[in-house]
Design a protein around this nucleic acid. Sequence first.
RNA 1: GUGGUCGUAGCUCAGCUGGUAGAGCACCGGGUUGUGGUCCCGGGGGUCGCGGGUUCAAGUCCCGUCGAUCACCCCA
Length: 444
Amino acid sequence: MSKPTPLSGFPEWLPAQRIIEQRFLDHIRRTFELYGFASLETRAVEPLDQLLRKGETSKEVYVLRRLQADSTDSSDASLGLHFDLTVPFARFVLENAGKLHFPFRRYQIQKAWRGERPQVGRYREFTQADIDIVDRDTLPAHYEAELPLVIGDALAGLPIPKPTVLVNNRKVLQGFYQGLDLVDPEAVMRVVDKLDKIGPAGVTAELSPLGVTDSQARLVLGLAEISADDGSFVDDVRKLGVSDPLLDEGLAELAAVVEAAGAHSPGLCRAELKIARGLDYYTGTVYETQLAGLERYGSVCSGGRYDNLASSGNDRFPGVGLSIGVSRLLGVLFGENALSASRSVPTAVLVAVSAEEDRRSCDRIAAQLRARGIATEVSPSAAKFGKQIKFADRRGIPYVWFPGAEGAADTVKDIRSGEQVEASAGNWTPPAVDLIPVVEGTFN
RNA sequence: GUGGUCGUAGCUCAGCUGGUAGAGCACCGGGUUGUGGUCCCGGGGGUCGCGGGUUCAAGUCCCGUCGAUCACCCCA
């Protein structure tokens, strides 16, 4: 077999990176549960019609096909890998509505797949950590303020640059554009969203083919440039002189989210009237999250409110959700060399073996340490002690345990300081910081 | 899907107008006869992405292909 080449877009982390990822996931999970979200895991595949129900994402979906399937066999042809966790969740809610209690809040940490060309922080297979709250018939607006606070807590505990949740409301854009009599509001949103990349002149140029006049474009840009971390943006929008009932509704909702967030967690959220994105099933509040200094890598956590995603017949389950792009977050920070783990293995102690005949007693020492929660492995061979220490050093294992010879006391050596002291496996404990690998970022 | 760039050791790369495949780091061994990291010496490792073509001769030139990467599209 020739040497396998990496598959772009399907990231696989090394052990030290995986330790960091697991630490991130543990923290995120714990935060979600502190807020009362129940865990859910859905299958990897959904019927294609479910996945394509909303929006233009069709070309991104990976379709499932059996290798042996012939042209007449279409049994799996209608299955695709999910490209986010919201659509499967909406389907799950409809399917199990009778067994769930509403409002229902759940978190879901799983892989998702998108058939796009990969770039830094963009993958074809990636992990998302998603929270959603759905209710029956109507969803109180305060949930739209709560979710970014949960995310704020989840991210605040991680060694990453300061996150800012940028918030907008589709109704603001939709209403404003309606008030301006623009024919294709969706297309205008997509152009406006590129403001940072192509600048005001670029936006104006791209709006022109959409039938937007220069004076309309000025107002569109005027709206897009509004940004505030409190409710003051409402007046700025009013000054542009566009009126529409939907716009009023959106402004009120957006102001409520920003004010609530500001009261609980100052500086976390900012109304940013240029952001429009997220998938196109969003109907109200939309979120994007940037890391200070790393804005160019895009959003590491996005979401929004959707009123029509989970509905069938007379049943309606409006929801609001936010997804942390765990793979993107890690990929970007790894790329910046901004994260480190103090070791590449969980092991805190390596028990040195002086001779193979002693291995059994070394195993007993290890068992005693493990019984007290200290991750321990026994040296692979009775090599020279220098080699055994090197084995530990390579992996970042902080302690090497030397069984005492012929009745002498055991000793344990901190190989970073070189300090070696007598110890008993029945009661020795490393300092808390050495118990599990330390994950650090250059940003904290 | 469209366009640009790039494929040489595990990693970073050198290899001139074609002439027998190299360095640093990493890894292994020894100096160091059972307590590492420094230093010195030695060693293993490559169908030069793959296939074809031109040539006496191709890592080098040409064509194709695959892969990677960046941008667009879109998005976590």
